[in-house]
C-alpha cells in the first residue's frame, strides 16, 4: 500500500518535472533575435512542415467539406432549410473542424517527423557536437522548427477552410442543386469575421504552439536509442492529439459557451 502511494507520488513528481523541463526548454529556444541565417533556417523549415503538409491538409479539407455538405443537406432538407447549407458548412469548418482536424493531421504528418528528426540528431551525437562547436542547438535546430510550426499550422488551417467550403459548394450546389445565391449569401450574412474566423484562428494558433512544442520537446528529450525514438514519435502523436481535443473543448467553452 505504502509502495503504491510512493510510486503514485513519484509519478506525480516526474510529470511535474517534465512539465518544468519542457517549459524551460520552450523559453530558452523560442525567444531571441533571429540572425539573417536564422531567417533562412526558418524558411527551410516552413517548406518542410508547411509546404509539404499542404497536400494532405488540402485533400482532407476538400473531402470533409464535401461530407459535411452531404450530411447537412440530408438533415436540412427535411425541414426545408437546405438554403442554410452554406452557413452550416462554413460555421462548422471555421469554428471547429478546420482548426482541430488540421492540427491532428499536422501532428501526424509534421509533428512525428520533427520528433524523429531531432531524435536521430541526438542519437548520432549531432546535437552534442553542435554544442561542442559552440553553437546552441536550441537556437539553431529547435527555434526555427518551433516558429515554422507556429506559423505554418494557422496558414494550413485557412487553406483547409477555403478548400472545405469549396468542397461543400461542389456537393451542395453543383450536385444536390442548392441555389448558389443562398449558399454564398447565407454564409456571408451569418459568418462573423471576429467571432467565427478570428476565434477559429486563435484556436489554431494555440494548437500550433502546443503541437510543435510537444513534437520538438519529445525529440530533444528522448532516450537516444531506436526504441526511444519510436516511443517518442508515438508520444508526440498521442499527446498532441489529446492536447488538441482537450484544449478545443476548453477554448470552445470560453469562446462560444456564453459564460460572461
Amino acid at each position: 500500500m505504502i509502495q503504491r502511494v510512493l510510486s503514485l507520488g513519484r509519478r506525480g513528481c516526474d510529470v511535474l518535472e517534465a512539465l518544468g523541463r519542457s517549459t524551460l526548454f520552450l523559453a530558452q529556444s523560442a525567444f531571441g533575435v533571429p540572425s539573417r541565417e536564422g531567417w533562412y533556417l526558418w524558411l527551410r523549415q516552413m517548406h518542410f512542415v508547411g509546404v509539404l503538409s499542404l497536400a494532405i491538409v488540402m485533400v482532407s479539407g476538400l473531402f470533409i467539406g464535401m461530407v459535411l455538405a452531404l450530411q447537412g443537406y440530408t438533415i436540412l432538407v427535411d425541414f426545408g432549410a437546405e438554403q442554410a447549407l452554406g452557413q452550416m458548412v462554413a460555421l462548422s469548418l471555421l469554428r471547429e473542424l478546420s482548426p482541430v482536424v488540421a492540427a491532428l493531421l499536422f501532428a501526424g504528418r509534421a509533428g512525428s517527423a520533427l520528433t524523429a528528426e531531432i531524435g536521430l540528431m541526438k542519437a548520432t551525437e549531432q546535437l552534442t557536437s553542435m554544442e561542442m562547436i559552440g553553437v546552441d542547438p536550441l537556437r539553431r535546430i529547435v527555434a526555427p522548427r518551433l516558429w515554422a510550426g507556429f506559423v505554418a499550422l494557422p496558414l494550413l488551417t485557412i487553406g483547409f477552410s477555403v478548400v472545405g467550403i469549396y468542397g461543400g459548394y461542389l456537393v451542395g450546389v453543383e450536385w444536390l442543386g442548392v441555389f448558389e445565391g443562398s449558399y454564398w449569401g447565407n454564409m456571408q450574412s451569418s459568418v462573423a469575421f471576429i467571432g467565427d474566423v478570428g476565434n477559429g484562428m486563435i484556436k489554431s494558433m494555440v494548437f500550433a504552439l502546443v503541437v510543435t512544442w510537444i513534437a520538438v520537446f519529445q525529440g530533444y528529450d528522448l532516450i537516444p536509442t531506436s526504441e526511444g525514438i519510436s516511443r517518442a514519435t508515438t508520444r508526440t502523436v498521442v499527446y498532441s492529439s489529446l492536447a488538441v481535443l482537450g484544449l478545443d473543448f476548453v477554448l470552445t467553452a470560453v469562446m462560444f459557451g456564453g459564460f460572461s
Binding site: 549531432q126 559552440g134 553553437v135
Partner: peptide, 19 residues
C-alpha cells in the same frame, strides 16, 4: 561556456557529422 568551447575541438566516436 559556448565562447570557451570555440577554443576546444572534439572528435566524437561516431564522427557526428551533420547529415
Amino acid at each position: 561556456l559556448f565562447t570557451l568551447r570555440r577554443r576546444m575541438g572534439m572528435l566524437f566516436q561516431s564522427g557526428a557529422l551533420f547529415s
